[in-house]
């Protein structure tokens, strides 16, 4: 059977890892490639790089990181942050990324997702949806899409948006609750499950992981097929292997 995926995410700025771990035997804890190799050896199912200050000027730095990672880690790699054009997608894929994650640019131009999926295939197009909770006067909860790293409200309902992105050709959705991101209180399970139960494509839960139980919640209750976390792995608090052992003990099938 298909296994639930555990995906460590590395925030990369100017080609360096932000909040890097200090594993023993690392020559350079700030080098994303070194960190990627650690996660690879620990049994991560995929890797994710997020370029947090992507700009035209430093694009080449990230491409070099992707290239060097793909030479050494024979596992799936997703890269996000500042992906705005078909040329951006092509350059990342040619450098060795398997999937690219599109966020703000999808909202600014939904046809970009359609065009990228048509050119490169849905399998490599991940649409990242950052959302916050809101409440209607009727007291019903809704989830609103935010862009620009969660700073800018769009007025778009996240469930509608998820459907539209599937229709445009997204192959996977990366869901981040901006209410939970950085809080260590766990995923927003209602948000994750609402979208996962709506779309026919795989969904990755992200934002808010503070314990290994939260990973279990994301799969079991959030109906995600993958869980993504950054800080619990960065700081060496838990290894990927510990995360998987915990999922397994909760009855969730994972890869050894």
């Amino acid at each position: 059977m298909l296994k639930a995926r555990v995906i460590p995410c590395l925030d990369v700025k100017d080609g360096r890892v932000v909040k890097g771990i200090n594993f023993v035997n690392l020559r350079d804890a700030g080098d994303p490639v070194e960190q990627a190799r650690v996660y690879d050896a620990q049994g991560a199912d995929e890797l994710c790089f997020l370029d947090i200050n992507a700009s035209h000027e430093n694009r080449g730095v990230m491409l070099d990181v992707v290239r060097r990672t793909a030479e050494q880690c024979f596992m799936p790699l997703t890269v996000g942050g500042g992906v705005r054009t078909v040329d951006d997608v092509r350059a990342l894929l040619l450098a060795g990324a398997d999937k690219v994650s599109i966020n703000t640019a999808a909202v600014q131009n939904p046809d970009f997702v359609r065009e990228a999926a048509r050119k490169f295939g849905s399998q490599c197009i991940v649409v990242a949806i950052d959302a916050r909770r809101g409440t209607w006067p009727s007291n019903q909860t809704y989830f609103e899409v935010f862009t620009h790293g969660g700073r800018k409200a769009t007025g778009i309902d996240a469930v509608d948006w998820a459907r539209r992105m599937v229709e445009a050709g997204a192959g996977e959705l990366l869901l981040t609750s901006m209410d939970r991101d950085g809080t260590r209180q766990g995923f927003d399970i209602e948000f994750t499950r609402t979208i996962a139960d709506t779309v026919p494509i795989p969904v990755i839960a992200s934002g808010g992981v503070g314990s290994l139980d939260h990973l279990v919640d994301g799969i079991r209750d959030g109906h995600a097929t993958a869980v993504l976390a950054a800080s619990i792995f960065h700081y060496g608090e838990f290894s990927i292997a510990q995360a998987k052992a915990h999922l397994r003990s909760a009855g969730i099938a994972v890869r050894d």
Partner: peptide, 11 residues
């Protein structure tokens, strides 16, 4: 519970 693409590690 069985989304498509079939994406990930399978035995």
């Amino acid at each position: 519970g069985r989304p498509v693409p079939h994406m990930g590690w399978n035995d």
